[in-house]
Amino acid sequence: MTLENLLYILVMALTTYLVRMIPFTVFRKKITSRFAKSFFYYIPYAVLAAMTIPAIFYSTGNVISAVAGLVVAVALAFFGKPLIVVAIAACLASFAVGLIPF
């Protein structure tokens, strides 16, 4: 542990915290505009989609095993299986396909 690194970690943590804290604590109004309400309704889904595609294809170091995991995840999620079941099944599928030498 160096003193410089501690300083950098402190700066990192403080910046991250302030970015999270200020709008969350200061913003008190209830949004009444229908457009704004709709915008905030869609944001979480849009964030998840943008984080997942295309990153999921590179998440296992092998596009083919990642596609196998994605297919399994979509199939199970389609039938409303719990998050943890979907996640474990996708890992198992990626692991199994990853063992196949292409």
Binding site: T52, I56, S59, L70, A73, P82, V86, S94
Partner: peptide
């Protein structure tokens, strides 16, 4: 091989949330 396969867990969870 195990470490790599675990990499997809978090994304599979996202899929399960939005689907």
């Amino acid at each position: 091989s195990v470490r790599l396969a675990l990499g997809i867990a978090i994304y599979a969870m996202f899929v399960a949330i939005v689907l």
